[in-house]
Design a protein around this nucleic acid. Structure first.
Length: 427
RNA sequence: GUGGGCGUAGCUCAGUUGGUCAGAGCGCCGGAUUGUGGUUCCGGAGGUCGCCGGUUCGAGCCCGGUCGUCCACCCCA
């Protein structure tokens, strides 16, 4: 076994080529889709000031941060999410930028947690944000990017769906059900956990944390079970505040329908998202079979930029991690096979031909072809074996005979056919 | 942070009630084939059986601890 001293840190991954291939497949798909929607790529430092996370996400997150004090006595942390960095970066420069700002990034994020399936101490996360637009069309645009990111990888409406909700709507509904304004956050917290709690336990929390009576609990439970805007309208639309929020959410869903993405979206008021900074529409993407953790989560965070000291700007975005997504792709057979590939492998019959072989190899490389050859004197059979193993599409053989007649033998590895190619054509 | 299942070659695993138990397949390297591949055959390298300690005449096998890993809880980007 490996010496413990040199073992990989728990929760961190190595990416040998066969694993790097999947990471690259995912990231290239993300990048294509983001650009298709007109987003520009950015990045920030992996290490940030600890305060950036404490002040914005709350003290409780510190327990899960990879943080330490650096040699300059600064409390620092490896970034656990990208949004605070984005807010900081835009805080410094958004005033001079035209809005809305459409930015995306694929940072490696870190969190000090016990690892288990779908959850490591680092992962790559696709972050897509629109800053400076408060209209729901921005919310719809962002969710469309997330959905298309998964479609780009071969996943369809049978594989995953978005569950969407709106904190403003939920706030209005909860107020209508008798929850005090001060206890709304506590009620959100209970709702966030409701799928993992037994009914009695949840009811108890609704009473103790949110101050609901039996009637209020029944009312909240009924609205959480509702998945149609129309039904909510019928049941709670008399409340003017609720009505206005419903109208906005209806428009959001209509916009996604217009894009042809309606099959991917379901209303689910149980989605509130854990982070404190969300202010409006929130959503999560789940696999339909419910075997995995959420693939993606996001929503509107209209106050964050000013909280970090920037220009007050509305914003909406999401984060999608590569770990759970990789598992979903694997379970659906959507991980592309890893196959090495080379355009050419140059076989040198003896050391005497190495100079010519190198000249040809380099000329081909200059023209953009991938070319490899044996790095030491080996039998032709051995070199052919290596060429086949490395996925060479063609082999160029150069030996004394070829040098003599000024032409190399070009072998097509798939068909086995061989023909002469004049040396002059290769250089 | 809590509880539980696992931990034997690079990989997947076999190892009977503790006494040739350190093995197989695949992979890797070399050869058969000193100018031609993916097959086949032959050979080789590679493991202090995660680590430390204990019980025993003797432990891969039993016990304790520890580390790693997986699962559940907690928490959630």
């Amino acid at each position: 076994m490996t010496k413990p001293d040199f073992a990989r840190l728990p929760g961190f991954r190595d990416f040998p080529p066969e694993d790097f291939a999947l990471r690259s497949h995912i990231q290239e798909s993300w990048r294509r889709v983001a650009r298709r929607y007109g987003f520009q790529e950015y990045d920030g430092p992996p290490l940030e000031s600890l305060d950036l996370y404490v002040e914005k996400s709350g003290e409780e997150i510190v327990g899960q941060l990879y943080n330490f004090v650096d040699k300059g006595d600064r409390p620092v942390a490896l970034r656990p999410e990208m949004t605070p960095s984005l807010a900081r970066i835009l805080g410094e420069r958004s005033r001079g930028m035209s809005k809305p700002i459409r930015w995306f990034s694929m940072p490696q994020l870190f969190r000090y947690e016990r690892q288990q399936r779908g959850r490591l101490r680092e992962h790559f996360q696709w972050n897509v944000d629109i800053v400076g637009e408060e209209d729901v069309s921005a919310d719809a645009e962002v969710l469309a990017v997330a959905i298309d990111g998964l479609r780009e990888l071969g996943l369809g409406a049978a594989d995953f769906a978005a569950r969407v909700s709106d904190r403003r709507l939920l706030t209005a509904l909860l107020s209508g059900a008798g929850v005090d304004a001060a206890r709304i956050p506590a009620a959100f917290s209970v709702i966030d956990k409701i799928e993992r709690l037994p009914d009695e336990k949840a009811d108890e929390l609704f009473r103790s944390e949110a101050g609901l009576d039996d009637e209020g609990i029944a009312s909240v439970r009924s609205l959480l079970a509702t998945t149609e805007i129309a039904a909510l309208h019928e049941a709670f639309g008399d409340d003017a505040a609720v009505g206005a929020e419903l109208e906005r959410l209806r428009r959001y869903l209509d916009l996604l329908d217009a894009m042809g993405l309606g099959d991917f979206v379901t209303l689910d008021l149980r989605i509130v998202r854990g982070l404190a900074y969300y202010t409006g529409i929130v959503f999560e993407l789940f696999d339909r079979q419910g075997e995995l953790r959420a693939i993606c989560g996001g929503g509107r965070y209209d106050r964050l930029l000013e909280l970090v000291g920037g220009e007050p700007l509305p914003a909406v975005g999401f984060g999608m991690g590569d770990v759970v997504l990789g598992e979903l792709l694997a379970s659906r057979g959507l991980v592309p096979a890893f196959e090495p590939a080379l355009d050419y492998f140059v076989v040198m019959v003896s050391e005497g031909e190495r100079p010519v072989g190198l000249e040809v190899a380099h000329a081909l490389r200059d023209r953009g072809h991938s070319v490899a050859y044996a790095l030491r004197d080996q039998s032709v059979g051995k070199q052919m074996k290596t060429a086949a193993r490395d996925g060479a599409r063609s082999v160029l053989v150069v030996g004394p005979d070829e040098v003599e007649r000024g032409a190399l033998v070009l072998r097509d590895m798939a068909s086995g056919e061989e023909r002469d190619v004049p040396l002059a054509e290769l250089l």
